[in-house]
Design a protein around this nucleic acid. Structure first.
Lengths: 256, 256
DNA sequence: GAGGTTTCCGTCTGCCAGGCGGAAACTCTT
DNA sequence: AAGAGTTTCCGCCTGGCAGACGGAAACCTC
């Protein structure tokens, strides 16, 4: 696993995440009620041209050794979104997260062995230029080649990747994968990795320009070592989620 | 409110919903743990050419008199979807529901007064030809003219209506609004009501036909009292949710 | 300077949504 | 029974857009 090795070598090269109120944490839940509630996150990033997900390896039973989505028990008096942000702070600097949105909530009584745990899942995205420092038990894994996954987390992971693919098509969510500034062919590589199929840079540029998602910065990127015309740099106009292609059909009449 | 009056007049005209294990139900929750979990539903139907939602009026504090989404506490050892189906059975025959899908889960600690309640919301749809018998405290309300809504249910309701509008555009969700068989202008009326803007029958027919969503039954509808050429009848090919217009852009190359 | 590489830009093509108008098929009136 | 009114059906035109291609431009290395 070349990725894992590379991770560990760079271990202390970047800032330490502020791990705040993260005290006793023995399992996915910190409090003990009849029905527990946990919050999980599918954190995705394009790494080396492929979509990768953040996973940590369970050290204890149940399912010791298997890989699990980051997250954990919801604190009392803690809202869902702040909770997943707090828990992710144990793994990565949460300032690295360019996007965070809620996915499905699963409540099957037997989805977790022993006692009932309801899980609310979030989708988190990290832009490609960030390389967060990770704890020892945590690694990026290519979505195309996953290790054994704990509980029902494989389903949740698939749902997260699917949501990303959809939203890339009708929103400006590309901003969450790309660095602040990028060339069109770079951007096409991110889209390729996330969508899982080829993307023509020419068409991508025309589409995103007409929708007003991206704009040229005016500068040009330094040419690569293999030569070639220097690419123009672009940036996303808005780095918050917007629906830019409301719907394929059934527009209000008269509107474009 | 002419709709409400009409509702009560028809009260015992149809089958009684099977209200199964619905015993003690004093508030939105039946069990008492530190953090409660409730399940709510935004049940929508096109009624008299307008989108309507199923609401019941609270008889007790908190927020007595205000209108609330149907639902209630999650039972122990009960999964989320079966739970909302059970709770809806108190209001309507669940066989009337043509579609049911999960929406957002809200967990703000103060969203419910007194103690913490996490809510998972579902979107339910009832086809236009069904007129369920309702309990006394429950009524359909036009989404365009809502009564005072309890707690944060107005937000949840808006999210449900918005989800419906989106999915009408890129899935075959129309089947959940329409009766088993319908004419194109009828269908256009359902779409109009749900989308909130005009829909051209000609274009609607062409689009849904090309996507393979609908097919002619071969029969013609009886002509109306005002004359006119009898309309051909159509039906949805598949009455389960399918994505028929995968994405506006970024198809895999080569694929249609 | 030549050849290779990468990006940029214009163009062609085919598909599709929106809109329009005439033809068809019915009811009601006189 | 003939005409007026109404509603649906069907073909056509138009503009916009995605996909694809190819040549020009701008950089590299040798």
């Amino acid at each position: 696993m070349p990725v894992a090795v590379k991770r560990e070598k760079q271990l202390s090269s970047r800032r330490r995440p502020e791990t705040a109120q993260t005290a006793a944490r023995s399992g996915p839940l910190t409090h003990r009620s009849l029905t527990g509630h946990e919050v999980l996150a599918v954190v995705l990033q394009v790494r080396d041209g492929e979509l990768a997900v953040l996973l940590w390896q369970r050290a204890r039973e149940p399912q010791s050794g298997r890989w699990s989505l980051p997250g954990g028990g919801l604190g009392e008096d803690e809202a869902l979104r702040p909770s997943i942000q707090r828990q992710l702070a144990e793994k990565v600097d949460i300032r690295d997260l360019s996007h965070l949105e809620q996915l499905e909530t699963k409540g099957e009584p037997d989805r977790y062995p022993g006692r009932r745990v309801i899980a609310t899942t979030y989708l988190g995205l990290v832009p490609a230029h960030i390389d967060p420092q990770l704890p020892d038990d945590t690694q990026w894994h290519k979505v195309a080649a996953l290790p054994p996954i704990a509980f029902d987390h494989a389903t949740l992971l698939a749902a997260g990747a699917s949501r990303l693919r959809s939203k890339l098509s009708y929103t400006n969510l590309g901003f969450a994968l790309a660095p602040p500034t990028f060339t069109i062919s770079e951007l096409a590589r991110y889209y390729r990795a996330a969508l899982g199929h080829d993307v023509a840079p020419t068409n991508l540029q025309r589409i995103l320009l007409r929708r007003g998602q991206i704009e040229p910065t005016g500068d040009a990127a330094p040419p690569g070592r293999s030569g070639g015309r220097p690419a123009a740099l672009f940036r996303f106009r808005d780095r918050n989620l917007e629906i830019t292609d409301p719907f394929a059909v059934f527009h209000p009449p008269g509107a474009p």
